[in-house]
């Protein structure tokens, strides 16, 4: 059962990702990105990381992609003025490079040792909360500073007159 679900959601994620990078219009890309994000969230659920799956959907699909969609609508580039994409050779070379990378990682992944067992309950709300607020408290706090900086930066950049 797990294998079937893994293959299903993995396939959806990969197909969605391919669509994201191949679609001409950014809106289509954004929608396929949501698909991929959902599939990845489902994979998280398969590994018992329920909390992360929920956060993945809330943060990525609920906020980041909405932001993308918002910007796409805001600047609303007409289809005729979308940039002309690179030549086929460049694209083929890019795909080849990525293929080499994926093959290398596949070889490495087979060598990489991890205990093969059922998913540990590390992604639930309780364990994540405990880890975040004890061992990784400093990192967590620094994240808030990062977010604050991002908020200020975004406002400073996008606002016409401050």
């Amino acid at each position: 059962m797990e294998t079937v679900l893994f293959i299903l959601f993995g396939a959806i994620a990969v197909c969605g990702a391919i669509m994201v990078v191949t679609r001409k219009h950014p809106m289509a890309s954004a929608l396929y990105l949501i698909l991929t994000l959902f599939a990845v969230a489902a994979l998280f659920v398969l590994r018992q990381a329920h909390f992360l799956a929920a956060v993945q959907v809330i943060v990525y699909a609920g906020a980041v992609v909405v932001l993308f969609v918002f910007v796409i609508m805001l600047i609303n580039v007409p289809e005729s003025r979308l940039p002309v994409e690179r030549a086929t050779t460049t694209r083929v070379l890019g795909v080849l490079a990525a293929g080499v990378f994926i093959l290398e990682s596949a070889v490495l992944a087979r060598r990489f040792w991890m205990p093969k067992g059922p998913a540990a309950e590390v992604g639930t709300v309780e364990t994540m909360g405990r880890a975040l607020f004890t061992d990784y408290l400093l990192a967590f706090e620094i994240t808030s500073v990062l977010l604050l900086a991002a908020v200020i930066g975004a406002i400073a950049l996008a606002k016409r007159k401050i």
């Binding site: 994201v20 994979l43 990525a98 990489f112």
Partner: peptide
Amino acid sequence: MIAPSAYLLLSAILFGIGAV
């Protein structure tokens, strides 16, 4: 049961597609 390497491979594929 899925081998951990399957996840790593999927991760690499997603990363690779994004890089392309």
